[in-house]
Amino acid sequence: MKTLTIPLPANNEDEIIDIELFVGLDKKKYEFRLESFLWETDDELSKIRDNTSISLARITRLKKSIEEYDKNWDLVQIFAPIENNNRIRVLYRKLRRKK
């Protein structure tokens, strides 16, 4: 078995999930962070009404959020928008530094 699945409690944004795994005496540490970016806003989007423009504005903002994110963290997965489309969650994994 090489895959271990660990059910996690519903965590809040900005909380870091630390996982320490011991294989014999060898300790491995994994850090995950579930981020939440703004998806729907009342500012510029409120002036735009057609679906294509709304989608483009959201995507542009999401791309910018991802581009500007801390480079020590690696994007793992983008989830579907939640909370009445207000926010979108993105899972990151901390890059492991070579010793």
Partner: peptide
């Protein structure tokens, strides 16, 4: 994500756009 890790490159799509 485990299967994707086997690839050289991961393309993330969202709403028909390449996001990253």
């Amino acid at each position: 994500p485990i299967d994707a890790d086997k690839a050289h490159r991961i393309v993330q799509l969202f709403d028909g756009h390449i996001v990253t």
